[in-house]
Design a protein around this nucleic acid. Structure first.
Lengths: 170, 170
DNA sequence: CAAGAAACATTAGCCGCCTTATAATGAGGT
DNA sequence: ACCTCATTATAAGGCGGCTAATGTTTCTTG
C-alpha cells in the first residue's frame, strides 16, 4: 500500500549543508515530513502483512469495512468509490476481486439500469467477524510506542496537518 | 505512492459501537493509526503531483537524492537498493527509467565484473538543482499547519512509533 | 587447480492501483 | 419523440512494487 524510501532520515550535518545551499529549507518541516512518511510506511507494511494472512489487501479491507458499516443495507457503487477515495475504475477492480472471493455481491439497481448496488455477503461478514478481533488487537500493539495521551496528541497534530493539506489540494 | 481510503475517520458513535463488539479495540490507538495513514497519504499525494511536474516519481526522486548525497562519487548498486529499501529487481526498473531519461549513468565496477556503480549525470544534477529550491519551499508549505515546536513534537512521537514498529518487524 | 557454492544484476510474471478512453444508459430541452 | 449531453461502469494500458528463476562472475575449498 505504501512505499517510502530512505532507510535512515538525513543526518543533521547533511541537512545543515543543504540548508545553506537552499535558502528556503525548513529543517524541522523536512524532518517531520520524512518521519511522517516513514512511520506511515512502517505501519502500512504491518497492516499489509496482517491482511495478507487473510488473503486480502488494504484496499479490499477498506471496501469491506465501508460495506460493513451499512450492513445489511446495500451501498451505491458511485457513493462507495467516493467514500473510499478511489476512482470508479479502481473500485471496479477491487469489487471484481472481492466478488470472485465471494465476499461481496453486485446487485443491479431497481430503477436505473446503469447503476449497481453492493452488499457484503454472509461470507464477507464472516470474514470480518473472524479478523476484526485480532485486527484491533494488533493495531493496539503497533501503536504501543505511545501512551493514551501521546496518541491523542499525535492525532491532533496530524489532523491539523490534514486540514492544511486538504486546503492546499483544492 | 500511497493510497489510504476512508474519506472521513470513523465517527465517535461508530467507534463506540465497535468497542462494545470487540473487547480489545483501543479507540485512541485506532484513531491515531487512521489519522497517521490519512495524513501521510495527503502528503504523499502532494509530493506526487509536485514530482509529476518534473516528469519523475517519488521512487525516482529517492534514487536521485541518494545519488546526490554521494555526488560526484558513484554508488554501489546493491548498497543503493538497501538504502532505498527496495529490492534489486525494483531498482533495476527504476534505474532503467532514469537511465532512459538521462539522469543516471551505469558504470561497470573496475574489478568485479558482476557489480555495477551508479552515478548522477550532469543532467541529473541539473534537474535536482532546478527542482530542490521549490521542493523545499513547498515542503515547508505542506507542513505549515504546525509551528516549529509542534513539528519537533510530531517528529518525536513518530520516531517513537517507528522504533516499536521496527522491533515488531524483526 | 578444478568444481561446486555464493553473489550479482536482470528477466519474467504477478498484483494493486492509477489514468484515460469507451460503451451503455438516462435525463433534459426543444 | 428526438438529439444532445451527462453519468455510469468497464476496459485497456502504465507504473512500480514483489518473488522466483536465470546466466554471469567470483569465491571457496578439497
Amino acid at each position: 500500500m505504501f512505499q517510502f524510501g530512505f532507510r535512515d532520515l538525513p543526518e543533521e550535518q547533511t541537512l545543515q549543508e543543504y540548508a545553506l545551499r537552499f535558502q528556503d529549507l525548513d529543517k524541522e518541516a523536512v524532518v517531520a515530513a520524512l518521519a511522517l512518511l516513514r512511520t506511515a510506511s512502517d505501519l502500512s507494511k504491518e497492516f499489509d502483512s496482517f491482511f495478507a494472512f487473510f488473503d486480502i489487501t488494504w484496499g479490499r479491507f477498506i471496501i469491506l469495512m465501508l460495506l460493513y458499516r451499512e450492513y445489511p443495507e446495500a451501498l451505491d457503487f458511485a457513493l462507495l468509490s467516493e467514500r473510499a477515495e478511489i476512482t470508479k475504475a479502481t473500485l471496479t477492480g477491487l469489487i471484481d476481486g472481492l466478488d470472485k472471493q465471494g465476499f461481496v455481491e453486485r446487485i443491479s439497481h431497481p430503477t436505473d439500469r446503469r447503476k449497481q448496488l453492493l452488499c457484503l455477503t454472509a461470507d464477507g461478514l464472516a470474514l470480518l467477524e473472524r479478523m476484526l478481533p485480532s485486527h484491533y488487537r494488533t493495531t493496539a500493539h503497533y501503536m504501543s510506542g505511545l501512551n493514551k495521551s501521546q496518541l491523542v496528541e499525535l492525532t491532533e497534530l496530524l489532523n491539523r496537518l490534514h486540514e492544511v493539506l486538504v486546503d492546499i489540494r483544492e
